Simulated scan of single mutants.
Amino acid sequence: MDHSPRIVDNQTFLPVLIELIDQGHTVALTITGHSMTPFLVHGRDQIRFCRPDRPLRRGDMAFFRRKNGAYVMHRVCRVDENGCYYLVGDEQILLEGPIAPEQVFGLVVQVCRKGTWIGPGDFWWDFFAGPWLNLLPLRPVLRRVYALAFRLWKGGRAHETQA
Rank of each mutant, 00 (worst) to 15 (best):
V72N: 08
I47Q: 05
V79F: 07
G89K: 05
R75M: 14
I118Y: 06
L56H: 06
T116M: 11
Y86Q: 04
R75A: 12
V79G: 05
I93D: 09
L95Y: 05
G69T: 14
R51Q: 12
L107G: 00
Y85G: 01
K67D: 14
M73D: 06
C84I: 00
F49K: 00
G69W: 08
P52V: 10
D53G: 02
Q110F: 11
C112V: 03
L107E: 10
K114P: 01
Q46P: 05
R48S: 08
V88P: 04
F49V: 01
T116A: 11
I118P: 07
C77L: 10
G59F: 04
M73I: 15
G97P: 02
G97R: 02
M73S: 11
V76D: 13
E81F: 10
R54H: 14
F64W: 12
G106W: 02
F49H: 02
V104W: 00
I118N: 10
G115M: 11
F63I: 04
Y85K: 00
R65A: 08
Q46E: 12
R66N: 13
E91I: 02
D80E: 11
F63Q: 04
K114S: 08
V104D: 00
R44N: 08
N82Q: 15
K67W: 04
G69E: 07
R57F: 04
R58E: 12
R66E: 15
L94Q: 13
V88A: 08
A62C: 15
P55F: 07
A100W: 02
K67T: 05
K67H: 04
E102M: 02
L56F: 10
R78A: 13
K67L: 06
V104M: 00
E102H: 05
V76I: 15
F49I: 00
A70Q: 09
G43Q: 13
V76C: 15
R58G: 02
R51I: 01
L95M: 08
G97H: 05
A100C: 03
D53N: 02
R66Y: 12
C50I: 03
F105V: 00
G106F: 03
I47F: 06
V76W: 13
V88M: 08
E102L: 02
E91K: 09
P101H: 02
G69V: 11
P55V: 06
Y71I: 01
D45Y: 15
C50V: 04
G115C: 10
E102Q: 12
L56G: 09
E91Q: 09
A70D: 13
